[in-house]
Design a binder for these strands. Structure first.
Lengths: 144, 144
DNA sequence: CTGTTTGCAAAAAATTTGCATTACC
DNA sequence: GGTAATGCAAATTTTTTGCAAACAG
């Protein structure tokens, strides 16, 4: 059984994208992290072991992986985005205070999607289901 | 039976926010439009009948109404936002090509919300359910 | 009148782009 | 060696902020 990491690297090679250490480092973080990291977070983490890394390369790599359908992006209201190594739609829980984002088990919305496609004429390709609130820690903490 | 418009204006007065023609114009568009307008769109529309209007005032008014809980905001992946005169969570259909956004009847997610709160410890206050795809018109049009 | 709101321009914040240098294949 | 990717800095885009002038209460 091949790892998803290897599988994506193979797809990159197939499409004649070059396999650079920067791309591999970004990919590895995206596949490993459960924190739904921001571009800045990925940048900081890669830079630790790869001092020449630039933020632009993080964005370029993330956009490449997004275009390949291997990761997804989650836009927040403050104008920033978070990345998710799982490209398949699944619900999130987002803390309004500390911005922590957790996964939640997939909830099948297939019949709902069909109904919406039928009623609106849209060709639905994906969806987003996110719950917002306060995480357990932020419920205890004093308001900042 | 009082209109929502009047009700919100009354609430603004109660909180000693000043009732300015700019605020009323922005509010009227938000309550009337079904298009989930951007700040820029609201600005253009108000400016037609109110040439001194500024984009900053649109944002200030929208943020005020959001803080009052009378409207909601929908962040898109391109970093921009769209506003919705309906503050209650309800699903949207978003066209990936022309960015049209349509409402869809509310889908009760109460028991799902409870389950997520129980399993994650989050105190859930709201949610977002959006479907992405191509609207009927963009399915016919040639790719741009 | 008093103090809030407006509207301009500048600032901020996030992301993208241009381009010379680097390095993968 | 040829070409695509990196990394810097500048540009872009969206939204916010500071502040003097305007105006609602």
């Amino acid at each position: 059984m091949e790892s998803r990491y290897q599988n994506i690297v193979d797809k990159m090679r197939d499409r004649h994208f070059r396999i650079t250490p920067q791309r591999l480092a970004v990919l590895k973080i995206l596949l490993t992290s459960k924190a739904h990291p921001s571009a800045e977070h990925i940048y900081d983490e890669v830079k630790e072991h790869f001092p020449t890394m630039s933020l632009a390369t993080v964005y370029k790599t993330a956009n490449l992986l997004k275009e390949m359908g291997e990761i997804s992006e989650l836009a927040l209201k403050d104008g920033s985005s978070r990345f998710d190594g799982n490209p398949h739609p699944h619900p999130h829980v987002v803390c309004a205070r500390c911005k922590a984002i957790s996964d939640f088990d997939d909830i099948p919305l297939g019949s709902l999607t069909d109904e919406i496609a039928r009623k609106t004429g849209f060709m639905i390709t994906t969806h987003r289901l996110d719950f917002f609130g306060l995480c357990p820690r932020c419920q205890q903490d004093q308001p900042s």
